[in-house]
Amino acid sequence: MNAPTKSSSLPPTAQDRAYTSIKEAVINLDYRAGESLRAQEIAARLGLSRTPVREALGRLQQEGLVRHDSGWGYVVRAMTQKEINDLFNLREVLEVSAAVEAMTFLDEAGIEKLAGFLKSARRELQRGQLAKTRALNSDFRLALASASRNTLLSQILLTINDRVRWLGSMQIQSRPGRVQESLEENEEILEALKSRDAALVKNAVLNHVRRARESVMTNVAPFL
């Protein structure tokens, strides 16, 4: 009989809890661009000491979601228009590559898994739950990247996903109809994947990313 093994999944540390809480609050616009993040207030709200909160803010600074201000501590950082364009340029290259690579590996079960995200998103949209619809669109995108079996590519897309989600939250407020458009574009990507036609997949992904760029640059970027 084998000896019992210790679980490799460790409970989140206080710093992890603070990091996740602050990051999600920034992405969901509970904290706005330019708003100060006071470690003492956040620590009190989370029931933590200030040390893990400061450490979490330092991590978020490294990731570019907040910046350090000598007078105010940490402040939510806005993206510049160049950074937004750079982000979408990167998405075009990486998401096309991920989708085309995934197409070669996806079997019927893999297609059904991807379809499940979009079916759930469609239900949430019909209920008027735009934030949940947006989140499921994001889950579809990351699951498609994972299906490429390209670990490095998936990791890079996961890294930039926080910025994509942040822009998506602002789009819900500035142009809520974009959520439905994004879902429809993802449904077109899924149909292209079913066809096993690399050119169709590439065009569907490019159409999605380019329409997202146009909407962000028109409805979000001018107000940052």
Rank of each mutant, 00 (worst) to 15 (best):
A33L: 05
M1L: 12
I42M: 00
I156F: 14
L136R: 15
R59D: 12
V164N: 00
N85S: 11
M1T: 15
R141M: 02
R91A: 02
R38V: 04
K132M: 07
E63T: 15
N203W: 12
L167Y: 15
V53P: 07
S195I: 07
L118Q: 10
S148M: 02
S146N: 09
P176M: 00
R59P: 13
S21R: 14
L152M: 10
L57D: 06
S49I: 02
L94A: 15
A25D: 06
D69L: 12
R210D: 00
N207C: 04
I160M: 01
N85M: 10
G177L: 01
L46W: 09
K119H: 06
A39H: 02
S8L: 14
G73N: 13
S169N: 06
A98G: 08
G177Y: 02
L87R: 08
L37Q: 04
S21T: 15
I172A: 04
A43W: 09
A121I: 07
S21N: 05
R59G: 11
S70P: 13
I42F: 03
N150A: 06
E124Q: 09
K6G: 04
L153E: 08
Q62I: 13
N219E: 05
L167E: 06
E181I: 06
R127P: 04
E187K: 14
S49R: 04
A192Y: 05
V209Q: 05
N137Y: 03
R149P: 05
L125D: 01
E187M: 13
E112R: 15
V220N: 02
I160W: 08
R175T: 11
R163P: 00
V164M: 02
G58D: 09
E112S: 14
S154E: 07
K113S: 03
A143W: 14
P12E: 01
P12M: 11
M79P: 12
V100H: 11
K6F: 09
A39D: 00
L224W: 07
A18I: 11
L57I: 04
Q15Y: 10
N137W: 06
K6D: 03
S70A: 12
E112V: 12
A102R: 11
L10N: 06
E214Q: 07
R54P: 01
V93G: 01
N85Y: 13
G58S: 10
N150E: 03
I172H: 00
K82R: 14
M217Q: 03
N137F: 04
L193D: 08
K113D: 00
D107E: 07
G64Q: 11
E108Y: 10
L29K: 10
L157M: 12
A14M: 01
R59K: 15
P222C: 01
R54V: 10
H208F: 10
Q129H: 09
I27D: 01
P222A: 01
L87Q: 07
I27T: 12
T80Q: 03
P176T: 09
L106G: 08
L200G: 12
E188R: 13
E191Q: 13
V164F: 03
L118V: 11
